[in-house]
C-alpha cells in the first residue's frame, strides 16, 4: 500500500475517534477540554511506545508505520484544538484555566512520551536510540 493512502485511511479513523470522544465528553466554552487532553495523552504514550519498541524492528513495513503513526495517532492527537481552546478560554477570561490546561498538556505529554519510549524500548530488548536516524516517516 502507498504510505500516503495508509495515512489517509489512518487519518479517517483517528479523526473519527477524536470526534467520537468530543461527542461523548462535550465541554462548555469556559470548561476544561477533557476530551482533547485524553486523546493527546493516550496518543502520545502510544506513539512513544511504538517508536521506542516495535518500530525499531525492520520487519515492520514503512506504510504500516505511516498509517498508524502519522495517520491514526497523528490525527487522533491535535495541537490546534489546544491552541483554539486557549483562545476561547482567554475570551471567557478564564486565563488561569487556560494556563493550567496548557501546563498539564505539556508536562504530562512530555512525561508520557518519555515513558512510552522507555517502556517500548524495554519490551523490544534494545537500548534507547541515542540518535534520531529515521527520515521522519515513522513519526
Amino acid at each position: 500500500m502507498p504510505p500516503s493512502l495508509a495515512v489517509f485511511v489512518g487519518g479517517l479513523a483517528g479523526t473519527g475517534l477524536r470526534l467520537a470522544l468530543d461527542t461523548v465528553l462535550p465541554h462548555a466554552d469556559d470548561g476544561f477540554p477533557w476530551s482533547t487532553l485524553i486523546a493527546n495523552l493516550v496518543g502520545t504514550f502510544a506513539l512513544g511506545w511504538l517508536a521506542g519498541g516495535l518500530w525499531t524492528r525492520p520487519a515492520i513495513p514503512p506504510w504500516l508505520k505511516a498509517g498508524i503513526g502519522s495517520g491514526l495517532i497523528g490525527s487522533f492527537t491535535t495541537l490546534s484544538a489546544v491552541m483554539g481552546a486557549v483562545a476561547i478560554l482567554d475570551r471567557e477570561e478564564a486565563t488561569a484555566l487556560a494556563a493550567l490546561y496548557l501546563g498539564v498538556s505539556l508536562v504530562a505529554g512530555l512525561a508520557l512520551a518519555a515513558a512510552g519510549l522507555k517502556l517500548g524500548s524495554a519490551i523490544a530488548h534494545r537500548p534507547m536510540p541515542t540518535e534520531v536516524t529515521d527520515d521522519g516517516a515513522t513519526l
Partner: peptide, 26 residues
C-alpha cells in the same frame, strides 16, 4: 475545518515524542 482539517493537520503526539527523542540524543 477546526475539528476535521486543523485537527488532522496538527499533531500533539509527534511533537512530544520528537522533543523527547531530541533530549535523549543529548
Amino acid at each position: 475545518l477546526v475539528t476535521g482539517f486543523c485537527g488532522g493537520l496538527t499533531t500533539f503526539s509527534t511533537w512530544c515524542v520528537e522533543t523527547i527523542e531530541l533530549a535523549d540524543g543529548g
